[in-house]
Amino acid sequence: MRHRFANLTLASVSYPLRMMPGLGWLRSLLGNRIGLIGLSILVPVLLLAVLVPVLPFADPFKTNVSVSLNSPSLEHPFGTDKLGRDVFSRTMTGLQTSLSVGFLVAGITLSFGLLFGTLSGFFGGKLDRLVMAGVDIFLSFPSLLLAIGLVAIFGAGFLPVVVAIAIADIPRAIRLQRSLVLGIKSRAFIDAARMVSATPGWLMARHLVPNTIAPMLVAASITAANAILTEASLSFLGLGITPPEPSLGNIIREGQMYLQEAWWISTLPGLVILLIAISLHLVSDGIREVLDPRARKS
């Protein structure tokens, strides 16, 4: 089930990219220094996570008490845990889970944000007030607390975690899309299209969304980074992915008891989280710089 999601999330990110007229900006992202650094970390990590099942890694679930708490070595690059499981292959499997959560949340958030934000901003009036009231209610809860509450209701596990994090992030995405739409709605090319009787659907699909998708993608890449961190936090608290299924959060949680004698169990997966979060932020900075020349500095 995890593997299926990994593929699905990749597709959900590349779809809006294909929708965009001209991929010139993607090419310039590759030419952008910050974006390139981010991508050169993110892409190998992504590949690694996707290819975990076919790579000759040790079985992440196989216990072997004879090698309990071994420090990092050539055989076990990240060492082993109390039960003698290989921390590296557990981390890689956990990475797959984490990235699936991140991109799935980003995809869901982006879709809901685009849908409700566009409708709300474009039509205004009662619909707008209703949507915005909902957004305000959700935004008045701290997002981690909201996620904890939702997990408490639905129980721990992969899907509840994704849903919980997405629900906490969607209101922000709606608000962003709505404000972007409001800015573009007043531009003259919208009048020009209305002048020839363009329908609301046409205006939204041809004019509004193509002009807001880029900043929304920037926001989505940050959402992905935050979702990975939130999933780790939830799993660390025991509310996320349940053991023995590995996730970066619960590996850290398990290793926490052995910090004194086996630092590697918690620290190395923690560094992996850091790496992904940083690379996602770099990529989003890169996208922003490519799209908004004003953000460029010397």
Partner: peptide, 23 residues
């Protein structure tokens, strides 16, 4: 209204903002 719209059209002041930059 739709058939009327064919009869009256406009040239805008700022030719840049009157075009969708992504088209």
């Amino acid at each position: 209204l739709k058939s009327f719209r064919r009869k009256v059209q406009m040239v805008f002041q700022d030719p840049y903002s009157s075009f969708n930059p992504k088209m």
